[in-house]
Design a protein around this nucleic acid. Structure first.
Lengths: 362, 362
DNA sequence: TGGCTATCTGAAAGCGCTTTCAAAACGCTG
DNA sequence: CAGCGTTTTGAAAGCGCTTTCAGATAGCCA
């Protein structure tokens, strides 16, 4: 059931031309402040940047003049002069995705404290687009760059290197490049082992799109290997790749059921997918966790509130963002840094997983 | 039930000092390109900015030289020279909030197409913080600014005016300033009227924090007025203000029940709050919608998938973002614009609302 | 008070682009 | 081929800040 009520569709008040805002003469520049304070622009700069060696009275005068005039330094001029933009870029696959939002938020928090601004861009799970967006950021001017994952367009590293700015990768580990993340394969394998230990033998996977996505790929690989190590296999019909979201999860599970004997447990690429799969399972009369155990990824806000509460792999997004921020800030300030920071994901056990009702016989 | 399994806590590989990246001489500048192409920097600039009036052969030569050198113009120098930063700022109350994320994403989409970058900042529902963040953005250099809501720090408008850049407000309407949004009071009132029409007489509200939040305030006011117009009142014990989130919703509803005869319907500030309230209701043995009708706000992804599916006020976040982007781009390019764009919210009817089981008698 | 050092200060030179302005090159026409 | 109107082009002047460098001041001691 779904209807639109009282749709008083959209209205626009047309063409009220903009009035001109105050004919403000011209925004004040350092010279104006210097004049007013009776000093040179050099001194203005020194005062406003807090550098020592300015006599108290002049300092006062400059401060007051700047205040009176409402002076705000021109960022571009400063950047041009100092060769520092005081900005950091971040390119993430999907800027609306909860996990990335959390990382960006905590990343920004750190940067902001250090006086940097964050400029985020969207790469949409496509290496070409990622390259394009990163290039755009480099042109506009950033002092550092955050990327997601370990596979990128071959030209990307060259371009970053040419700009001579530090870069840090997140969400996965890398032997070649600085990174903050976790072992996606290992954490997914841990979830698989947990299910195997519970007695499950037919285990399925519903992942998001894996194209240009090393994290998703690694997780599936990790699961397949964990199964193999215990003499089990990930059946092709139990290895589903769908688009993200609750709808994707429903479709994915439906697809899986169409492929032969259903699994007794599934591991999903996100909690949204897991939620969708649970809905579809219920619609098919399957009990979770009685007939089907479900594990998600991310520990979204709603995960503990689902019915049953969702077992999930919690990614410490906030800590990844903080660590990535700290890493970049340190390098931009020329301090030594750790090259690899590992922040392991945790398996959070809740009610959506249980031993299979009737242990499978094979 | 909630346990942490196999917590192999966090590891950091320490102090592998960063190797120096390629000792690249110095990134190429326009002069280098000019030299290589045998022209002046003026011509280089003309070619790279696509301005007409450059002979084809020189244009070719410049293109090739720029390509060979991997030249990328310095954004700060360009900004300083053109007095345009090609950047737009946005200050939102909570950068992690789903509704704002969606607006920012669609806003950015438009800006990006027009060659602008978005710089977003977090104001945390506090006017002082909002002022601080906006000022920070103004200093760093933006050509336009997006804000949320119609109440701001008194100094904010002065500062924006001093910079002479356009600003647009979102999510609510304003008679003083350019805006893209909807009538929060009216849309909430519509929801209230719908409940009244269903036969509800005791209607409650659980809103998020209303401090420095005109949207939240307007919604409650709208509901109270709608009730009053039908001879009903919003009882103080049914007017709850809590922090956002599912947990907030649970707490809020619990608090409401503690305050006397329970309402037969509630309107919540977000779908998360509504979800929390539904969980708490169920925990108390109340049936939704039999004993309690619930309406949310935003039409989050999960709303149609809750059990029962959630009736909610859908805010067209993506369209608000697009319209705000278009508005700002137009003004930055000196084109005339509409001053007020209204994009009404819709009431989406689903299964969480129904007539009260036993009509109240008053 | 003179001399010497330590502290402050301002003039001026960039930073790397864009853009104006005048000169150069070009293409026609008569 | 001179003369004239167009195109093209480059020199140079900014844009508004930081920072160097040398000169001006102040502080101190004898």
């Amino acid at each position: 059931m779904r209807a639109v009520f009282a749709e008083e569709s959209r209205i626009s008040v047309l063409d009220v031309p903009e009035e001109i805002l105050e004919p403000l003469s011209r925004s004040p520049v350092a010279r104006d402040v210097a004049h007013r304070a009776g000093v040179s622009t050099a001194t203005v700069s020194r005062v406003l940047n807090g550098s020592a060696g300015v006599r108290a009275d002049k300092r006062e005068a400059v401060m007051r003049a700047a205040q009176d005039l409402g002076f705000v330094a021109n960022g571009a001029a400063r950047a041009l002069s100092t060769r520092r933009f005081m900005a950091v870029g971040a390119v993430v696959p999907n800027i609306e995705n909860e996990a990335f939002v959390r990382v960006l938020s905590s990343f920004q928090e750190r940067l902001r404290q250090a006086g940097y601004t964050l400029v985020a861009a969207n790469a949409g799970y496509d290496l070409e687009d990622e390259l394009r967006e990163a290039t755009f950021l480099l042109e506009r001017g950033v002092d550092g760059l955050m990327l997601v994952g370990d596979i990128h367009h071959p030209d990307l590293h060259t371009r970053i290197a040419r700009h001579g700015i530090p870069m840090v990768q997140t969400f996965s580990l890398s032997r070649e490049r600085p990174c903050v993340g976790f072992d996606n394969a290992a954490s997914a394998a841990r979830a698989a082992n947990y299910l195997i230990d519970l007695g499950h033998r037919r285990i399925g996977v519903i992942s998001g799109l894996r194209k240009d996505n090393d994290r998703g790929g690694a997780r599936v690989t990790g699961i397949a290997q964990a199964l193999a190590a215990r003499g089990l296999t990930l059946a092709p019909e139990h290895d589903i790749e769908i688009s993200y979201g609750i709808g994707g999860g429903r479709d994915g599970f439906r697809q899986m059921l169409a492929g032969g004997p259903p699994p007794t447990a599934i591991i999903c690429g996100t909690d949204q997918i897991a939620f969708g799969a649970m809905i579809e399972a219920r619609a098919r009369g399957l009990d979770v966790p009685g007939d089907l155990s479900v594990i998600g990824h991310n520990d979204s806000d709603f995960a503990p509130f689902l019915d049953p509460a969702l077992t999930t792999i919690r990614i410490h997004s906030a800590e990844i963002g903080h660590a990535a921020g700290d890493h970049l800030i340190a390098r931009m300030q020329g301090r030594p840094v750790v090259r690899l920071t590992q922040i392991d994901a945790e398996l959070i056990l809740r009610a959506s997983t249980a031993p299979p009702r009737k242990p499978t016989l094979d």
